[in-house]
């Protein structure tokens, strides 16, 4: 058996094991555990697609929250029934044709992703005219613009009131199904000639151009693909939380994603997955620090936002002491795992 076939087989087995574990949690897990697992999957999708732009292309893009917002609203508007919409939009009625459109969940997710990609395309020309800090500022600004628009365009988004009572379609199968597909698709892209072209731009844009690479085309490609998956994840989030409003997806979310991919190792998909999993789990586990504590002799009042302080400290420590994060730019591979386990090559 060739190494390629062996790895394919191990990949399939790995995914099967994952879904068996998910099945067990789905049957016997508590709501709390299931919520953490759903969050984990959505953050994995977000981090892996965000890493494509920031880690692989080496661009500091600070606007994924915009694409998540667009995906969330699009998807939510498409799954709400006409009657629900009429009840929700009490101040300004929802514009046609959104007021009558109604699609199945999976279609709403895809269209959420597509809509995010359309917006990404619309801003790509100003964004990729500049590089570095300027690009970061332009994308950051776009994130704010979308938040303001979500507030102001009442006939589309219902303004500050947001959308409530969405059907909680997002379950473990949807969230993890999307996460696994995202990981597979983006990993294949990164390891392809297109991914190499993106990395060459990150390494030395001048040399990349001299070797015939069109930077705009490839940065745009990464940006659109990343926006698409962020949009899909936004749709998942909307139907997980079941209530969305303009204040839900602020720069704060982008900042969290940045922490995840930097701690995981900028440029490593494996790192993004590990970072996202730790973040989703840690975010829940650390809720204790925001709760009032009574140690008998000492009463500590709960400090809201304390978790964020802890995450920020972790980020600073990583940047100062372990700049390459958990994984650096390395990726998980079966070869590595098998050799760690003392596997002998001749077994196959």
């Amino acid at each position: 058996m060739s190494k390629e076939r062996r790895n394919l087989l191990l990949n399939i087995m790995g995914i099967l094991v994952l879904f068996v574990i998910l099945y067990l949690f789905n049957e016997y897990g508590t709501d709390y555990q299931i919520r953490i697992l759903n969050n984990m999957a959505v953050f994995i999708t977000l981090a892996v697609s965000y890493n494509l732009v920031n880690g692989i292309c080496g661009i500091l893009h600070l606007g994924p929250n915009a694409f998540i917002t667009i995906g969330a609203y699009t998807s939510a508007l498409l799954t709400m029934s006409a009657a629900e919409k009429q009840m929700t939009y009490i101040i300004v009625p929802l514009v046609w044709p959104l007021n009558v459109l109604h699609t199945p969940f999976v279609v709403s997710l895809l269209l959420g992703g597509l809509m995010a990609a359309v917006f990404a395309f619309a801003i790509s020309f100003p964004v990729f005219r500049v590089r570095g800090d300027y690009l970061a500022i332009v994308t950051l600004g776009f994130g704010e613009v979308i938040r303001v628009l979500a507030n102001a365009l009442q006939g589309v988004t219902n303004g500050p009131l947001g959308l409530k009572g969405l059907v909680p379609y997002t379950n473990l199968w949807w969230s993890w199904g999307v996460a696994v597909l995202t990981i597979i698709a983006i990993t294949k892209l990164i390891n392809s000639s297109y991914g190499r072209a993106m990395k060459s731009i990150r390494e030395d844009e001048i040399a990349a151009r001299a070797m015939g690479i069109d930077p705009f085309k490839h940065l745009l490609m990464a940006f659109l693909i990343s926006a698409f998956f962020c949009g899909v994840a936004g749709g998942l989030l909307a139907h997980l939380i079941t209530t969305i409003s303009p204040t839900l997806f602020t720069f704060f979310l982008t900042f969290n994603l940045l922490i995840i991919i930097v701690v995981g190792g900028l440029g490593s998909t494996t790192g993004a997955v590990i970072g996202a999993a730790l973040f989703a789990w840690g975010g829940e586990a650390l809720r204790i620090v925001e709760r009032p504590t009574d140690l008998g002799f000492l009463k500590i009042p709960g400090i809201p936002g304390m978790r964020m302080v802890i995450f920020s400290i972790i980020l600073m420590l990583v940047i100062i002491f372990a700049r390459r994060g958990i994984m650096g730019r390395s990726e998980f591979s079966w070869d590595w795992l098998l050799s760690k386990l003392g596997w002998k090559e001749k077994g196959f």
């Binding site: 698709a185 983006i186 294949k188 892209l189 392809s192 000639s193 297109y194 991914g195 190499r196 072209a197 070797m211 015939g212 690479i213 490609m221 693909i225």
Partner: peptide, 12 residues
């Protein structure tokens, strides 16, 4: 890469 004939989605 400049002469590649397959599209990115074929790679993905």
């Amino acid at each position: 890469h400049q002469r590649i004939r397959t599209f990115f989605w074929e790679a993905m």
